[in-house]
Design a protein around this nucleic acid. Sequence first.
DNA 1: TAGCGTAGAGAACGATCGTTCTCCGCGGCA
DNA 2: TGCCGCGGAGAACGATCGTTCTCTACGCTA
Lengths: 182, 182
Amino acid sequence: MDHEQRLLDAAGDLFYRRGVQAVGMDEIRAASGVSLKRLYQCFPSKEALVVAYLRRRDERWMASLTAYVADAGDRIPAVFAWLERWFAEDDFRGCGFANAFAELGAGSAAVRTAVREHKERLRAYLRSLAEEAGAGDPGLLAEQLLTLIDGATVTAMISEEPGAARSAGQAAAALVHRHRRP
Amino acid sequence: MDHEQRLLDAAGDLFYRRGVQAVGMDEIRAASGVSLKRLYQCFPSKEALVVAYLRRRDERWMASLTAYVADAGDRIPAVFAWLERWFAEDDFRGCGFANAFAELGAGSAAVRTAVREHKERLRAYLRSLAEEAGAGDPGLLAEQLLTLIDGATVTAMISEEPGAARSAGQAAAALVHRHRRP
DNA sequence: TAGCGTAGAGAACGATCGTTCTCCGCGGCA
DNA sequence: TGCCGCGGAGAACGATCGTTCTCTACGCTA
């Protein structure tokens, strides 16, 4: 495995679990086994590493969600079933993007952009699901689903109970039903 | 005005706008005009100051919301109208509690507790609104409203558009309607 | 084998953090 | 007036941060 992958593996785990500011570059070096010199050859600054972490997390998170939903019959309920499994994971600690935005959004335009791109990708995907479900206003339904997802993620992070996904899933089902009949 | 108030005013503004870790104690001293010695007499550590900031923010935030809603006819829609006004404020930067949890939750049990207490207070208030609205399962409706509020707050923070409150308010109205007829 | 380029380990650097300490000047009291 | 104690300004401290530099050891080529 090349150095960049090893660095992103170590940084991704540490940044997500403990927060970006709480993790120093030397800890990433120790966890990855990559020397500091090479670390700075791959990523010229911590900010660059954080942005790369967010981009890779976006790819993997979206890929996991879409793969799970593609295999399910009822697409939109499957989104919330996937969320519940995610919330129950041992190292779940909320939305890595919202957390990074909270930590660094005020200071780093690159982080703001990376987070917005992720949310935009998710919104577009939810819109495709809303269209497939025959919603009268798929843009509005997608926005509401996004709100339920982000809200359930915050609630699960703070309460440390994966049940937040279930009530959000019920709300989503009610909204989908609502959007079908104008 | 006494020193504690001046400190909490300055710290509250700085912590919320820029994040806790991005603000040093010396900057709080400069903004408040309170000497460093007295600062540490009032709050023996930064963590204590952060917890006091969260408690005061909880009180004021809840007081503002409940006062606004109490004056309105339709209580639950009023919650989302209040949210929209909040999102449109110049220095809006998301939920101070979720942001503090993202920054410090992994490292500070006191911060985790303060954040959970706020969310619990909000949940209890929403439950009282759900009961008043005649919901069949007020606990579930309160949980869903909380999810919509947190989700809309995250979306508004990231997108910097207050419109997130509107679609969430429409979703809330649909859910209230749903809960009335089983 | 001699010379060279490279890579890793980790010391070093300047900045900044939370926290404590020192010093000085001012007000109350005999 | 002389003394004492308190409070403020800010220097100082040790730790740690992101980043760079030095030194050493090794592999390749002639």
